[in-house]
C-alpha cells in the first residue's frame, strides 16, 4: 500500500523529532514546518494527504491555519494540542479539523489516529456517492432509510437514525456536540445538549449489543466519533 505523504507542523523541535522518528519507523513520508506560514506554503505546494497541526504556533493561530486550508482543500487535518482546554479543541474541530490529539500522547495513539484517517480517506475516495454504508456488522441503506445490524433491522427512533447517519457520513471524524445538535434540531440550547446525550446513549445500547465491538466513541466534553470496525 502506498504510504501517504504527511505534513508535520510543530514549532517545538523535540516533539517534532519524536513525531518524525515515529513516522520514519513506520515508513511514512513526511514534510516538516516549524510555523504557520511555512505550513500553508507546503500545504499548497506539496498537497500532503494528511496534516498534523500543532495549535500553538509562533506566528499564526492554529485555528486560523485550519480556516485558511479549509478555504481551498478538504485534506484531513489532525490537531495536536498542548492546551487541555476543551474550548480550543472544539474551536479547531468546528473550524474543520478532523481529529485531535492532546499532548502528551503516545506514539501508538498517534499511529492509530493516522490509520483511522487513512481508512476514512480511502472510504471517501471509494464510496463517496454510495447509497449503502457498511461498517463491520452495521449497514445503513440511506435510500430506504433503514439501518441493519448483523442483517437484522434496527428499530431506531427518527432522531437516533439521523444521529447514526450523521456519524456514518463522517465516520472517523470527531463531530462536536454543537455540530450534531445544530444538524438535528437547528439549535444548541442546553436542553438539546441533554437530549443529545440521552439519544446517543439509547442509540449505542441498540448498536453495541456485543460489548467487544465499539462503533461510537465518546469524546467527553467535545463530541462523538464513529469508529471504523475491521
Amino acid at each position: 500500500m502506498n504510504k501517504p505523504l504527511l505534513l508535520v507542523v510543530e514549532d517545538d523541535a523535540t516533539v517534532r523529532n519524536l513525531i518524525c522518528t515515529a513516522l520514519k519507523a513506520n515508513d511514512y513520508r513526511y514534510l516538516t514546518a516549524p510555523n504557520g506560514e511555512t505550513a500553508l506554503s507546503h500545504a499548497a505546494a506539496s498537497q500532503p494527504d494528511i496534516i498534523l497541526l500543532d495549535l500553538g504556533l509562533p506566528d499564526l493561530d492554529g485555528v486560523e491555519v485550519i480556516r485558511r486550508i479549509r478555504s481551498w482543500s478538504l485534506m484531513p487535518i489532525i490537531v495536536i494540542s498542548a492546551r487541555s482546554e476543551d474550548a480550543d479543541k472544539i474551536a479547531a474541530l468546528d473550524a474543520g479539523a478532523d481529529d485531535y490529539l492532546t499532548k502528551p500522547f503516545s506514539v501508538a495513539e498517534l499511529l492509530a489516529r493516522l490509520r483511522a484517517t487513512q481508512r476514512r480517506l480511502s472510504a471517501l475516495q471509494g464510496s463517496a456517492a454510495e447509497a449503502v454504508f457498511r461498517n463491520g456488522k452495521l449497514t445503513i441503506d440511506f435510500g430506504a432509510g433503514c439501518a441493519y445490524l448483523d442483517g437484522q433491522e434496527l428499530k431506531l427512533t427518527p432522531t437516533e437514525y439521523k444521529l447514526l447517519c450523521l456519524l456514518a457520513r463522517d465516520a472517523g471524524k470527531v463531530l462536536t456536540h454543537t455540530y450534531l445538535t445544530g444538524k438535528i434540531w437547528g439549535s444548541s440550547w442546553e436542553s438539546d445538549m441533554a437530549s443529545l446525550r440521552v439519544h446517543m446513549a439509547t442509540l449505542r445500547k441498540k448498536l453495541e449489543k456485543d460489548p467487544d465491538t465499539q462503533y461510537i466513541q465518546t469524546h467527553i466534553g467535545i463530541g462523538y466519533r464513529m469508529l471504523k470496525v475491521e
Binding site: A87, H177, E190, M193, V198, M200, A201, T218
Partner: peptide, 14 residues
C-alpha cells in the same frame, strides 16, 4: 465552571 449535562456512565467510562 463550564457545566453541561453529562451522562454519568460516560464520565465513569472516561
Amino acid at each position: 465552571l463550564r457545566t453541561q449535562p453529562q451522562l454519568a456512565q460516560e464520565l465513569v467510562a472516561e
